[in-house]
Design a protein around this nucleic acid. Structure first.
Length: 581
DNA sequence: GCCGTTTTCGGCCCGACTGTTTTCAGTCG
């Protein structure tokens, strides 16, 4: 069973317990367990297989949750969860998702009005039966009705925005606010600053001589569809595209603390605050304070906040409570890969298959970026829709590239075009081009493009078989996910990576914004197994080369350093690494 | 339910905004 499925059960247990009015800390334990499991780089199944007792080495997983994990893996379900579901109607879990309704109101609605589902709730609101309840009035009723509508539309669309979608909206908003007279500091915080692959909302922080001015201008932004909340220090709007944006106005002396706090992640912050508490300090978005005297000890700079609690400053991408606090404490933080470390791109297309630019144009764009090399990896013939190349056309491209390299050399440019392909891995695990021609290439990228619905076991065998041919250099977009559109196919990534290690195959981190595949957790797994990662763009046009930043930041989220990344190597070293037996 | 630089018991992150309240509970991040 997949980790996400197990995580979902624990999150549901948390929700159900909360509706039942249980001890909030018990609730938090389950919720926390869900989050931790979600973020694990290895499957629980494989952990339990190897050494069951090591489960309790994972912080946040104790005896009780350990037992439940084992139970779920053995039986496919959890009795405790099932019993709760009998007691609390499952439809109430959906009611809980309506914005503005928390566990207390869910319980109230269920107990007093017999509400069991979102539809029940909508009906009750339309019949004006809600405002009789304690703590609810006319306005609550209207608000709930609106929230139900919002929920129903959101259920169709995806609830989170892809990083690459949210990013430009945030940037434009920031530029707009920067123009307000008196604005001193302005930063985007939140999951966007951590470069998470999907973004729930955008947090913008400002310091300004006159806070009211920037707040006013914030809600007047032309793209705003709705003002959800408006206060002196905090306001929330929803943009026309549905993206929520929060603005916080701060004092200069609290800016660093606020930046730290609103960058998150939530579990990182909880860990930082917990640590501070044990040191007799209190951390809030206004600063770090001595608990006894109330004296402020830090706040203006983010670095100072971390230093006050005995930690080195760490890159936002690391702040997921995945060991960064321990690393920062002992000065063992990774030196993360940076954009300037990247020497070339090992996955690009041209007009020969489904790219928008010619070979020459792609090369020119790569040279302009300051790269030393690119690998031209057009599709192979199985991918008919992309006009994939057969052996004959590929031979012709090989000759073209040889000639182009000659010309580059003659003109004194230190740049090499690598001959490559993105060869399709067929359903039976064979490759879509003959071994003879694959051996003539510098860089063979292999990928799955069809038959996504096979079982995990078959998919794993399929990919392992392809890697075992000894003809492949890089496994491209290893899980096949399209964020918000297509789930990753079922595959045992541990086994795939073990095979990759055995056969000398590298893993790709596809930087295409819809993919970001490998994701951050799998980057960690690759690093742990000692497999170099190729941060490649899969460019289908010269402008796509810029997508590399999304890949780099995802790699940073996976703790990758320059040495963990294949295409930080200079050409000569790269060629050695790509040599196949 | 988890956890341990004060602890195997007794804590557990912290503050803003909203709506309904005359001092606060619920929700959210």
């Amino acid at each position: 069973m997949e980790n996400t499925e197990i995580a979902r059960i624990f999150t549901e247990i948390a929700d159900l317990l909360e509706i039942r009015g249980e001890n909030p800390f018990r609730v938090r334990s389950y919720r926390n367990a869900g989050l931790i499991i979600e973020g694990l780089p290895v499957s629980l199944e494989s952990i339990v297989e190897r050494d069951e007792s090591s489960l309790e080495d994972i912080p946040g997983i104790g005896k009780s949750i350990h037992e439940k994990i084992v139970e779920i893996l053995k039986t496919g379900k959890c009795r405790f969860h099932q019993e709760l579901l009998k007691e609390v109607s499952p439809g109430l879990l959906e009611v809980l998702k309506i914005s503005g309704i928390g566990p207390k109101k869910v319980k109230l609605l269920a107990d007093r009005l017999g509400i069991r589902s979102v539809d029940d709730l909508e009906k009750a609101a339309r019949e004006h039966r809600l405002h009789e309840l304690p703590g609810m009035g006319e306005r609550s009723e209207q608000k709930i009705l609106k929230a139900v509508e919002g929920y129903k539309t959101l259920r169709i669309a995806s609830r989170r925005f892809r990083l690459s979608v949210a990013y430009p909206y945030a940037r434009n908003y920031v530029e707009y606010l920067r123009a307000v007279p008196g604005t001193i500091d302005i930063e985007v915080a939140g999951s966007l600053r951590r470069w998470k692959d999907t973004i729930g909302d955008v947090d913008i922080l400002v310091t300004c001589r006159k806070g009211a001015d920037v707040m006013k201008r914030f809600i007047e932004y032309p793209d705003v569809r709705e003002v959800v909340a408006r206060g002196e220090t905090k306001s929330t709007v929803i943009l026309k595209v549905g993206l929520q944006v929060d603005l916080r106005v701060l004092d200069k002396k609290s800016f660093g603390a606020a930046l730290q706090y609103f960058t998150g992640s939530k579990s990182h912050n909880i860990a930082v605050r917990d640590r501070a508490r044990r040191m007799g300090l209190k951390v809030s978005e206004y600063g770090v304070f001595d608990e006894r005297t109330g004296r402020r000890v830090a706040g203006e700079k983010e670095e100072d906040v971390y230093r006050a609690v005995g930690l080195e400053w760490m890159a936002p991408e690391l702040r997921e409570n995945r060991g960064e606090i321990e690393a920062a404490e002992s000065g063992r933080l990774p030196v993360l890969v940076e954009e300037r470390d990247i020497k070339g791109d090992l996955h690009v297309h041209t007009t020969e298959s489904d790219g928008a630019n010619t070979l020459e144009e792609m090369v020119e764009a790569a040279i302009e970026r300051g790269y030393e090399y690119i690998a031209v990896t057009d599709h192979s013939k199985a991918v008919g829709i992309a006009h994939g190349l057969d052996e004959k056309r590929l031979l012709k491209q090989i000759e073209d590239i040889d000639r182009l390299n000659e010309r580059l050399k003659d003109s004194g440019k230190r740049f090499r075009v690598l001959k490559g392909t993105e060869v399709d891995i067929r359903a039976d695990g064979t490759l879509d081009l003959s071994p003879d021609i694959l051996k003539r290439l510098d860089c063979v990228v292999a990928a799955v493009h069809s038959g996504f619905n096979m079982t995990g076991r078959k998919m794993t065998e399929r990919i392992v078989k392809a890697l075992g041919t000894g003809l492949v250099n890089i496994l491209a977009h290893p899980t096949g996910r399209l964020i918000g559109t297509r789930e990753p196919y079922e595959v045992d990534m541990e086994k795939v990576m073990s095979a990759a290690k055995k056969y000398g195959v590298f893993m790709e981190l596809n930087s295409y914004p819809e993919r970001l595949d490998l994701n951050d957790s799998y980057c960690m797994l690759a690093r742990d197994k000692g497999i170099l990662v190729s941060i490649a763009t899969d460019s289908h046009g010269s402008l796509h080369l810029d997508h590399v930043i999304y890949g780099i930041h995802t790699a940073r989220r996976g703790w990758l350093e320059k040495k963990d990344v294949l295409n930080t190597r200079p050409l000569s070293e790269l060629l050695k690494l790509l040599r196949r037996s």
